[in-house]
Amino acid sequence: MDIFYPVKLLADWLTPNVALNFFIYDTIKIFILLAVIIFIVSIIRSYLPPEKIRAILSRKNKYTGNVVASLLGIITPFCSCSAIPLFLGFVQAGVPLGVTFSFLVASPMINEVALVLLLGLFGWKIALIYILSGLIIAIFSGIIIGKLKVENLVEPFVYQNTINGNTDLPKMSQKERIAYAKNYTLDILKKVWPYVLVGIGVGAWIHGYVPADFLAKYAGSNKWYAVPLAVLIGIPLYSNAAGIIPLVSALTEKGVAMGTTLAFMMSVTALSLPEFMILKKVMKTKLILIFAGIVGAGIMFTGFLFNLILK
């Protein structure tokens, strides 16, 4: 039984209009999911701040390091403003470069806001495919970058400082954890609600008024160029991830192939122009291009693969 059945009843009672009904149902469902899941993730996170993650990672060897880094990336919030402290903090404490990159890929790609929207609008199967593909891309991108021995492409000052990874962080009480999670949840909701509303609104309009399969002839699974194009368009769209997922969920209904949709969403979250600009402070442009190239290739592979499988 669908736990959102009461919401469906409410929407049905309020309006028979397809687009409006869709808008009311999706909005209520997504905001409930956002509040609950962000709260839970924040509680977990209060036990695993980046400093603790670093202590875990600096003890792991290469391959397990990549896997653990990618998994821990899921629960860490990521905004481009924390990219530099994370990068410096990891590398200077002796976490291998490849492992650091695994974390830098997974952290923005698999974030709680994207997960909620995938879960709410695409269902758990697609959400799971997204998480697993994201993890695999993060693990392998990190392993490849580690093998390339590109330490010389990191700005020299990074390696001139070394620090020990032990941090004396302030202890949090149970009450403080709950207060932190509540504040964080409200913060994120305040930040994303306009995007989510606009995204769902435009999505609902498409759902109600655009003919089914309208886009199939441009972006169906037999169009090879759809996946690379989706990845390219996704790069400058980072800040609007919250609004873009509802929108693409409606486009999928109208004939955009599922693999293309997945590739687009991954590109929006994982490849971000502002983040690249900021990373230039600590690494050479060549390394940023290598990083973007490997992750981009992984995303395209995922897109093509699921266009083949999910017909």
């Binding site: 701040p49 980046p50 400093e51 670093r54 403003c81 924390s82 402290p85 994370l86 410096l88 903090g89 990891f90 200077q92 400082n161 620090i163 020990n164 990874g165 032990n166 941090t167 004396d168 962080l169």
Partner: peptide, 8 residues
């Protein structure tokens, strides 16, 4: 970073 912290 020297303070051992990675968040701002």
């Amino acid at each position: 970073i020297e303070m051992g912290v990675m968040q701002s």
